[in-house]
Design a protein around this nucleic acid. Structure first.
Lengths: 201, 201, 201, 201
DNA sequence: TATGAATGAGGGTTCATTCAT
DNA sequence: CATGAATGAACCCTCATTCAT
């Protein structure tokens, strides 16, 4: 019956949400399974019916959250009529920064646990349109703008690392500047980077 | 008596070195104070005469190691006759990347525990010449080259974050490319960044 | 309906057989009811419809297995035309030792869990012929050979304990000698014991 | 200082004695380390300063207790002027049975955990006189009585197993008879066994 | 100062048992 | 009858911290 399945889904969600909140507040190492289950208002033993250990919860969470962020950004991009490739890149970065700025907890979690491996996984597995991954989508963005990027993956990597690492410090600790200040400096740099990666023929 | 002081210094060093090796191998959470003191060949209780807990040891270590890296880089810079400001910046970055590439263990430790707060502290408190901090030194570099950087701190921040975050992935996991590949793309970007931060008058 | 009964019988057998295999492999304490039921391919809750706990399963098993051993021995005895009482006793012991030697797993299980109480229960409740217990049968053996044993129960007890305890060490660990060596020493001793228990009139 | 050492000795004794009592009452598997330490009035963690796990305690206990039993029996033998070899063997068995009868708790523990391996270890390592093991001593007993046993180890094994296994049932459960009854039947059997093992020349 | 034995809270994990389906 | 998700007590073990020496 569907009732049981639905109940299990609810339990899993409760565990995941509880874990997320605690991972944020105290870090993963300092969050015990007992803590997670107490907050989830479930018995300790129930945890092991859903996950092997807390690191499995973490991986589940990172993937889920990162995918959500990208989806949101791309949905927003589609709603706006932007034609230039550069502008599209900046739009996405800007959207992601805003999302993270409005959800500092998520930022903390993501930036601590996001490796290039997981990020690439996210980009490749987030489906934007039917059967089209985010990676495909970005490639399409360039092509349809009549631009040719020499090494798209490398460009994304560089931009992602720069954005992620500066955002972490700026949004969470306003160090060394405020987000608005960062953006002013960051976007020209990104435009430069894009051009740097463009095939010169 | 100096002998007593020296003895205490030796004990502290033993603790710190033992802790460093273990933090690297097993992570901080999975290193117990008992482990540290056994490796240091000292009694467990002795730990508390020198540090409050293992996190105090970690902070002590990060500062010490980061300072060492900068000192090495700047010593090397002085030994080479480089006149252009851009080249000096690239030289320092290149030197740091090589140091970290040759000491992946240190890289792992540093990049996991390096925040902008600690980095700034390092730059400000590392004495390059007598009474001159690394921060002062960099400012001097620009001036003596007749260049004027609009916002030096911001520039250092941006470069540091880009270098640190890309290096982590590339050196430790060769993801998405090898270090030599990274350098080829990175250095032009850094030059671009420097120019971006230069006052246009 | 007979079908329902048969179904229940099958389930009980599945539980018992699964339990036996696991008790042997991991010991009773280290066999969980979940293990038993997984191997039996039944739901955990079903266990409690058939047994109170795993110790009830163990007792059920010991009785069943011990009865089987005796039955086999006595069937074999009947198939051979042995007339002397002494020879009959030795034949039974020899047959039991061979059975156990060929089934060390069973030996391990039996000798760990066999008390005189259970053994006597087995001897009294194993039906050899219709309405005749193994105990009755042995008494008959003596009588029909024209022998009179002063204290039959005591004799069986002594022989059983000597055989069981030496067999355990010898068969499982070949300590202190091999089974063939043990038999050479054991059978004369048993003959002696039988004579010892014979009424001297 | 000796004070610390003595204190540690006391703690170890407390653990061992507590464990012994609980092993007897509930069996080893059903005795938790928490139980042991609560009864010993020590902290749970202290256990691990002295033993790896409860099985290490068990082994320590079996060896200690078995050695004690043998020592007592042999001391008593020396105090009595018995000249005949047969009588000496019976004396020792009788003494052991009485010790065990007066200490049923010990009997329960010993007979559950005594394998031929541990028994032989005990016989070989219990020092009766200076530099003389119990095994040596028994051999000496035979020789000095001008008797020659064909296979002394085998004889001891057989007697030990017969005594141990029958005693267990009789002393603890008075099944199938009382101890006095058992002795009446047992001693002639043992004499028979000894003669059986004597070289016929 | 330096020691290391002792502590006991708290971690992860298992599992007999219950009960809604 | 049969199921298996859920429970929470109980297990073993680790370890930061204290304190008598």
């Amino acid at each position: 019956m569907g009732k049981v399945e639905e109940n299990k889904r609810k339990k899993k969600d409760a565990i995941v949400n509880s874990a997320f909140a605690l991972f944020i507040d105290h870090g993963i190492k300092d969050t015990s399974i007992a803590d997670i289950m107490k907050k989830a208002e479930l018995a300790k033993g129930t945890f092991y019916l859903y996950f092997k250990d807390k690191y499995e919860v973490r991986d589940y969470l990172v993937r889920k959250k990162a995918a959500q962020l990208f989806e949101n950004a791309i949905v927003a991009l589609k709603e706006n009529n932007i034609t230039e490739f550069d502008d599209k890149i900046i739009f996405i970065v800007d959207n992601l920064l805003d999302q993270l700025n409005n959800n500092k907890i998520l930022l903390k979690f993501i930036s601590k646990n996001l490796s290039w491996g997981i990020l690439r996984h996210s980009i490749e597995n987030t489906t934007v349109n039917e059967g089209e991954s985010a990676a495909d989508y970005i490639e399409q963005l360039a092509k349809s703008s009549g631009r040719h990027i020499r090494n798209l993956e490398m460009m994304v990597f560089m931009i992602a690392e720069l954005v992620n690492s500066t955002a972490h410090s700026v949004i969470l600790y306003k160090q060394p500047v405020e987000l608005s200040e960062l953006k002013k400096e960051l976007y020209p740099l990104i435009i430069n980077m894009v051009h740097s990666f463009e095939e010169t023929c």
